[in-house]
Computed example of a mutant assay.
Amino acid sequence: MNSPTAPAEHLLLLASDFTRHNDALTRTRPTGSNTATDLTHQAAFTQHLADSALHIVDILNAEPMYHSPAIRAVYARVRQFAHLTADATDLLLGAVALLDDTHAGIPVQDEGRLLTRLTYQQALDEAGSRVTLVRDLIVLGAQDALTTAKLFVTERRRRGMHRLPSRPHCPPLRAQCCAPSRRAR
């Protein structure tokens, strides 16, 4: 398979990655001793989503194009993907740290900024809440990436269809393109 080069192709790959990640998060149940390892793997994949979104921004920057409102919306949405998934990564890594600290007997800060010693079950429950939050945050990522790819392609086609050939050495062709159609009546 060829590696994708167009921003729309990368957005489609991002959509499939979001789907795979959401499926994996749905199967993630913080219940045992391997929970921290599982969450670390999920955090790595979530960070991959953020990196992919930033890569798409780089690809968009390399494309010569008019930055219409639709294209600016594509940029904004891809940057939102990056920020959202980076925040989701932080949530998962926070859950890993919470589990590790609880396992080591280190008190953790609660919402009131007090140090509290949690049981491992309490830490697992909190980790489960964070996994649910991450899943809820990125559940629409796949559909949004598809919609963004469609917007990008639609806008590029729209802009491309209205562009006249830019061949200064070929004025007759330009005149034919610009002249009104003459149909036999």
Rank of each mutant, 00 (worst) to 15 (best):
P180H: 13
C178K: 15
I71H: 13
A95K: 01
V96I: 05
V96R: 05
T19N: 11
I138T: 05
E9P: 00
P168V: 08
A44Y: 07
T102Q: 00
K150N: 13
L84W: 07
R130E: 01
R167V: 07
A44L: 09
G128H: 04
L39V: 02
V131I: 03
H21Q: 07
A179R: 12
M65L: 11
A76F: 10
R135S: 10
H41Q: 15
E63Q: 15
A43W: 01
R167Y: 08
Q42C: 06
I138F: 05
A86Y: 10
S16Y: 08
P30S: 04
L98F: 00
R156F: 06
D38W: 04
G94I: 00
L124T: 03
L54W: 10
Q109V: 02
R117V: 10
A127Y: 00
A53E: 03
A123G: 01
L39T: 01
M65C: 09
Q143I: 09
V131A: 00
A53T: 03
L98N: 00
S166W: 14
C177K: 08
H83S: 12
T28M: 11
A104K: 07
T132M: 00
E126R: 05
T132K: 02
E126T: 03
T116C: 11
D23N: 15
A6T: 14
N22A: 06
T28L: 10
T89V: 03
P165I: 11
T31R: 11
T85K: 03
F45I: 06
V108Y: 05
S68V: 04
R158L: 06
R158K: 12
C177S: 10
H103A: 15
R163K: 09
A76H: 13
C177P: 03
P171Q: 10
Q176A: 14
P4F: 13
L114T: 14
S16R: 14
L91E: 06
F45N: 06
R130N: 01
A97P: 00
L39F: 04
L173H: 11
H41S: 15
A149F: 06
R174A: 08
D144K: 12
R29Q: 15
V131G: 00
A179K: 02
Y120M: 09
S52C: 03
L133Y: 02
C177G: 00
L14I: 05
G105K: 06
L91Q: 08
Y66P: 02
Q122K: 02
H103V: 08
H67S: 07
T116Q: 15
M65I: 11
I138Y: 08
